[in-house]
Amino acid sequence: MNVSVLFALASTFATTAIVSVGGLASMFPEIHRQAVNVHGWMTDGEFAAAFALAQMAPGPNVLLMSLIGWRVAGGAGMLVATLATVLPTSAMALAAGRAEQALSRASYYAILRQSLPPVVVGLILASALVTGRAAIDDWLGVALAAGVGIYISVLRTNPLVPLCIAIAIGVTVRRMGF
């Protein structure tokens, strides 16, 4: 096992996770940039497949990082990528949880809570755009993404419902030979 690859995985995922604001989805553009452009660990297509598989499995968004770790360096890579994403930020959450009473009285906590939402929206939008560019290469993909986005915004069901509909439509359309 190439230790330098594991080290690169650990440092990439840990440093990205500690600046991910408003959830791990804001990590996706940076992880895509690192995995495809900077380190050349995978192609756009492989990234898109990993993204799809991680979304289909139940559980938190960290699964994309786990799967990239696995693709790059096997079981050890999966373990390193998952722990690097989860542990530093969990340690920060633990500290913040223990200081909650002091934090909730502190004025900077209120200011932080008011300041971050615009940054978070920008990051999630960018995340959708960057993963979209990697994962979508035809009109069908654009239509499915738009359909699912509108469906979930209007109906607010479990996300798996529109996802399954999209998969059914995608397979059917291909079979019809478009």
Partner: peptide, 16 residues
């Protein structure tokens, strides 16, 4: 086809 559709759908979820 299913994987491509799932990836596209997941992008849609992020836009949502």
């Amino acid at each position: 086809a299913a994987t491509a559709a799932a990836a596209a759908g997941a992008v849609g979820l992020m836009f949502g």
